[in-house]
Design a binder for these strands. Sequence first.
RNA 1: CGGGGUGUGGCGCAGUCGGUAGCGCGCAUGGUUUGGGACCAUGAGGUCGGAGGUUCAAGUCCUCUCACCCCGACCA
Length: 580
Amino acid sequence: MRLSRLFGRTTRETPADAESVSHQLLVRAGMISQGAAGVYSYLPLGWRALRRIEQVVREEMDRAGGQELLMPTLQPFELWEASGRYVSFGQSLFTLLDRKEHRLVLGPTHEEVITDLARRYLQSYRDMPLMPYQIQTKFRDEPRPRGGLLRVREFTMKDMYSFDADEAGLDATYQKMASAYAAVYSRLGLPAVMVEADSGAIGGKASHEFMVLTPTGEDIVLHCTTCDYASNAEKARSNKITCDSDAVCAEEVRPLEEVATPESRTIEEVATFLQRPSSQTLKAVFYIADHEFVLAVIRGDLEVNDVKLQRALKCDLLRLAEEGEIVDVGAVPGFGSPIGLDGVRVIADDSVPHARNLVAGANRLGFHVLNANYGRDYTAELVADIAQARGGDRCPACSGTLMEERGIEVGHIFKLGTFLSDKLSASFLDENGVSRSAVMGCYGIGIGRLLAAIVEYGHDDKGIVWPIQVAPYQVHICTLNPDKSNVEHTGEQLYQTLRSSDVDVLLDDRPASPGVKFNDADLIGAPLRVTVSPRTLATGSVEIKWRNKKEAELIAVGDAADLVTAMVRDALASKRSTDG
RNA sequence: CGGGGUGUGGCGCAGUCGGUAGCGCGCAUGGUUUGGGACCAUGAGGUCGGAGGUUCAAGUCCUCUCACCCCGACCA
């Protein structure tokens, strides 16, 4: 491609509404352009990069036993009613009415459709494992799109679904996909780590995310500094036994006692006022779970993790209760606790039952109680781990410490089990002729997000530094002073020769100054730059320089085409097969 | 949805006390330049997000509204 003909133009100014580096650079390089919030056009350069990523993903999916197909974007709403997932997806579902006023949804994912499809073709255990996948546009009406391509409402996603005859089969397929994902990231030059994750609206049991750790990520990852425990913060566990609480556990149970604590509403205020560590207090947090009032209690030094709470409660919608709602059940905001509260569902964090003599709210304005004890003074219908783990906490798996880092989620795999195949009756006959529900898994990679993550991870102050597998063009030829001597002719010849040997090459044939050309080359980020100028030609050479290296070297004009071709091939080959 | 912010040529911005819009980049033409975003000259391009109002007069003041960005609740 000739830069003079390329649709898209680089800009010097960074766009005012672009915050993240990937957003800024992709726009400045003329790769993407925003249409609406969370909706983007891919210009030719960006589209090429996107397709390269797709291709890598496709190859690894095929290698792992996947079969590519294509499902419709428009899905009947009935399918979502049947699965029940229109509730958990809720507002993020884009829905529309056709001319007959029939309700359709723009697919945010395709578990329903694929299960419905599988139902028709999957009949025997001999048909499994079955691993269909597609690379297709998804629509999700996100509450808040952000970060350019990092979080959008319309995006291409690779989504694979697996159908196995039993749990063991699913486990094996899941493992296979985890390795396939690792292979994808490795080929794309991204160091992604696999972490435990919550399955969210998708549903299912086990799930893992693949994270690229960068300070700009929107997720928080907790990982152990000594063992290999790693988890998304929304799912992470931690060892909550502290010296403090150990001592508390050993105490003798003392009688309940009411104390005046005027103006002490927060844990911090109460702890300070009564001169107790916050770990000897009981925190009460009021929620509305699926329209039902729920009181969550947790040791005062910990925070409730809403995601874990929602999971423990098995509810679809969870929000904090408003002050009026708290008062309605007879509790007093700031002085609340389960003590003396009737008819309210209580869920306790597992840090609570064995803790002795805590300070708790008295459900009376201006008063707390001392020596609140689980079992004697209050109980919970459910005890579960609902605490937010944080950096510095102790690892739940070993004696190490958890570290907190930000990450971009570039892949998510789920063990779904049979809840969808049950609901949509995707069953098969096992070897004993017994009808059973297929055991499902699903596996997603956001292609555009991956593109953004690659830029977030690979750039410098000049622009993008593409891994050669992803670069829209592998070689970028700059002709300086193309009107002088035979610069233009040499550049042109090199361009044609490289093209004919299947090297993707960009020729900057514009009559621009050297600075402009170099800066654009750096911005666009092709791995290898070739400079042809009167100066190099004077010594019968051209200059080559890798985008990620500082120094350039001169090579003879006559050897240039062959050498550059070989260098590109070598670089591509070294990344191409990483399976093991 | 809650909190914060921004809307003025393609992009980045200025616009005072209300007097009918300007700068830089980019673009076009001509010329001089050329190894890290050159220079001169000329030129094209704007219903100031939208609606309503106040006023002799509104980019500027008032009301409403829309869009976009950032922080929180969601996810590939």
